[in-house]
Design a protein around this nucleic acid. Sequence first.
DNA 1: TGTGCGTGCACAAACGATTGCAGCCAACTT
DNA 2: AAGTTGGCTGCAATCGTTTGTGCACGCACA
Lengths: 341, 341
Amino acid sequence: MERVKLIDVARAAGVHPGTASRALSPEAGSLVSAETARRVVRAAERLGYVPNTVARGLRTARSFLIGMVVPDVTNPLFPPMVRGAEQVLSRAGFTLVLTDTDNDAETERRQVEQLRARGTDGFLIATARWEDALVQQLADAGVPAVLVNRNSSPHRLPYVGGDERTGVAEAVEHLVTLGHRSIVHLAGPQDTSTGRERASAFRHALRQHGLPVGRGQVRTCAAYSEQAGLDACTRLLSSSVEFTAILAGNDLIALGALTALAGAGRRCPDDVSVVGFNDLPLVDKLTPALTTVTLPLHEMGALSAQILLGAIDEPGRTGPVAQSLLGIKLAVRGSTGPARP
Amino acid sequence: MERVKLIDVARAAGVHPGTASRALSPEAGSLVSAETARRVVRAAERLGYVPNTVARGLRTARSFLIGMVVPDVTNPLFPPMVRGAEQVLSRAGFTLVLTDTDNDAETERRQVEQLRARGTDGFLIATARWEDALVQQLADAGVPAVLVNRNSSPHRLPYVGGDERTGVAEAVEHLVTLGHRSIVHLAGPQDTSTGRERASAFRHALRQHGLPVGRGQVRTCAAYSEQAGLDACTRLLSSSVEFTAILAGNDLIALGALTALAGAGRRCPDDVSVVGFNDLPLVDKLTPALTTVTLPLHEMGALSAQILLGAIDEPGRTGPVAQSLLGIKLAVRGSTGPARP
DNA sequence: TGTGCGTGCACAAACGATTGCAGCCAACTT
DNA sequence: AAGTTGGCTGCAATCGTTTGTGCACGCACA
């Protein structure tokens, strides 16, 4: 039941452990004769040798561990990204460690510290705030890290996200084509890049279509949550602002808005059209099915992992950091319809 | 920027590294004088010493790593369990490594192997099949492991799940109370404990109510998926079996069934009542909102982690293994209604 | 004052792999 | 045929901690 170790393999092959190590390593494989290498490899297979990652990590100062930090695994936005990242990483021999910060900065700090004590080789950060101490710290320390989905203000780390501006532009275009002239944006929190970007893109898109951007037409929600969406929409309804369409900061906000609208007797899409963001599972099964902007979450996870691997491989690089935006699509469904004349 | 290590702390405190180690370890803390201990601790704090987990792991043969194996993170069933487990584990100083097997046995084997090479201290398995080679293997090897959500046939490992039988009983009771006499079960795959257990409990519940269990009244779906539910329900509709209610193996199957019913012009709940299992996010927002059995997923994750920690602490134990069932509740919503006379 | 005992610390050997260095042998050059 | 080169392999140090062992010192007791 004892784990077989390198020295056992070496003995079985009649060589020194050092030689066995080289024979099994693709890197230094050329330093050993083909004949010996074959003998060692065969012995290793026969004995079922599995190298001890911990021992190797101690010597090489690499852990082959990647930490991925998400605010809440329970939010369906993240699992696809995790999956994409894991596939790329595990193919490259890395193990992904997922940690859930529960949206709490202190928890996040602790988790990352613990991971760093493990000698984690790099981080995938999906929790970035617009101004983020942790992100700064990682950048300062020169720890390989990539931001996913949410960016952070001084672009010091690579970032992978969706092309928010285009997504918003398409959504607005869609609404305008349907005849809507009074569109309101229920924006996400402005301490996230997505919240800021979408709001800014919204204003820009309106101007492009020659529509005025009035006061109270962009309303910031306290969080990316259903409750926050409900609150914001309720306030909107009790204000004097007229509107026939809502662009929500994400699907949860859209759901809250739908609830608020229903409560106020406004029908969707007959009275008000609603567009969401993210295309969460099941929003296509609602009545009406939610029109929403879909992000390539899986690809975002995969690409961020690839970029991270690149950064790990050349630690000395000081070139410009990449900000990658992936294509986005609008899924037109039942929650948007022609504006009432 | 160099990481400060134990020897630095020792030097700063004017003691030998061995002594410093003991001073910092609560275990052996009594082997060193209070005065020295204080000096060492202060030095450690001042220098910002963070012990190297890898080196420690090499010496102690413990990694403080727990692997959690799920078939698909993207399935909303799992994230809450992951979350529950992570909270317990991280409090105990362990790091949770999540791996997604993509429902593939070979991937699963590879992942677990990789984790074992890391000296992972224990496993949380959420992928168990009724007959499962991996589970057998872990049990044989004496690796601490706990099954979550799905059990495996010879109960050799501890298991934590929901009280399926009671859940099914309540669902059937609910339907019978509504006047339904012809109830069909679209069962999940029979190579999973949940699929078997729910089907068996369904038969039992019918008998309890004096209802006959006819042929074709329990139909097995090929997978826990929407497509499988749609297929099974389509076949059901084209058979001669009469029914006014469906108990689905889980929510996805229920969704598929709803689609099939709608396609056949049968309305829910007017013509057919449907009950699901799991209470996935948003199923309460559908029209009609899905009546479903809710599992305490978070608690399942937390409890399984606790049991695992216990197993790790006393490796020698050979007592009986615990099979823990947590309470379950029926969420009555719009998809169930009175049977038509 | 000598023996005995206990406390507190230093010493060094692990843990299992990687890797710079040195040595050996064979082959090739001149 | 002697010298040189170069390809393989063995040796031993090393990564940072933990922990068994033993020494030294101080105190108490006879």
